[in-house]
Design a protein around this nucleic acid. Sequence first.
DNA 1: AATCAGACCAACCGCTGTCGT
DNA 2: CACGACAGCGGTTGGTCTGAT
Length: 407
Amino acid sequence: MGRSPCCEKVGLKKGPWTAEEDQKLIAYIEEFGHGSWRALPAKAGLQRCGKSCRLRWTNYLRPDIKRGKFSLQEEQTIIQLHALLGNRWSAIAAQLPRRTDNEIKNYWNTHLKKRLTRMGIDPTTHKPKQDHSPGSSTSQYTKDSANLSHMAQWESARLEAEARLVRETNKLKVQRQLEFESSKPQPPARLFLNKITPLIQPSLPPCLDILKAWQSSWSKPTTKDDSNNNNNKMHSMYAMMLSNDDLESPTSTLNFPGTTLLPLPLSVPMTNNNIEPFNQSLLPLTNSTNNDDDDDDDDNEIWKQFNLTKHNTEGGHGHDNNNTMLNFQQDDDIMAAVEAFRASGGFDNNINTPPISTNVLQVLEGGDHQENLDGSMICNVNLEENKHYWNSILGLVNESDDMNSIL
DNA sequence: AATCAGACCAACCGCTGTCGT
DNA sequence: CACGACAGCGGTTGGTCTGAT
């Protein structure tokens, strides 16, 4: 259908905003709210189109925006989510409090993408670049993995649609659940960040439903006997990449011998010094950085409980501990989506990690270790990494769930 | 000091999805 | 159902900054 321009272009200013224009926009929105963006410029005395005003406000002037350098944790989050979601910047931004999609997109294009490329990783597929010649021993694998990855994208999109549909039908049920949640004592300071950024987390992004559902479909329990399960070196790849010398973060020169991420934001007690729990969850373990809550026993116990819980179709809280704040509750709609996904065939049940992991693994030199660029060795403990990798992703998802539960 | 190239990022463009009529 | 208005999203552009020569 034909479409009229968003606004009358003639006579409207374009280009960089002046301080005066900013002040006008801020003053108007603070007093009246933005209301209709189309009508705002005239009311605010600005010679701009509404779209321009909206962009200026959402990407720059909004008071809850965090500017400046991205932390290592933020970088990791972006990369991990990009591996799963692709260029869905708004969905990625939803998991990075106070960052805008535009900023993340710019940062990806100017920093992370290049860094991945330098590391020999295709920033689009998150797979190592390799020989694609017909005679290449990896060509068939590449073809298969590409197909699998493609299928995963389609399945992801379809699953998202299903989850959305189920969510609609369960709206009343969810409402009751939220009311029940709100009647319970509120967890402590872990929610601090939510309170200061209510506007940027209005709802759980559908894509995260998919992550959760997807993870459920992949992560049936594994055993340490799965020595052939070589599916989890992606995590090491990213750890290797993030530990590259040119990393801009202050921690860039650190190596991550175990390439282990703290398991769960859920296992990180919230304190006044820890206002970004999910970021904390992605901190790499180093010799100089340790966390008392991160010993293997706790980790294993959490993972064990998670597996027990996620196979319980009734959901429920796996932990009711104020320190761990472990919320294992699976939204009913997600579980329904998972069931629908599985019923429709889903992925091969014999595969217990996502394509993005399997893709990387088989092209890396075999064995349980790989060499870092600086010669240090990265230990690939498959089971543990699988666990940690998905824990970090799930941590984001659960974090988002919790945010929604208090809004 | 001047010039140039590359990096950075705010802003724009055009498309899509949603909602109201 | 068709249509228009609008908000949101992702890709792209172009102005500015910065460092190298």
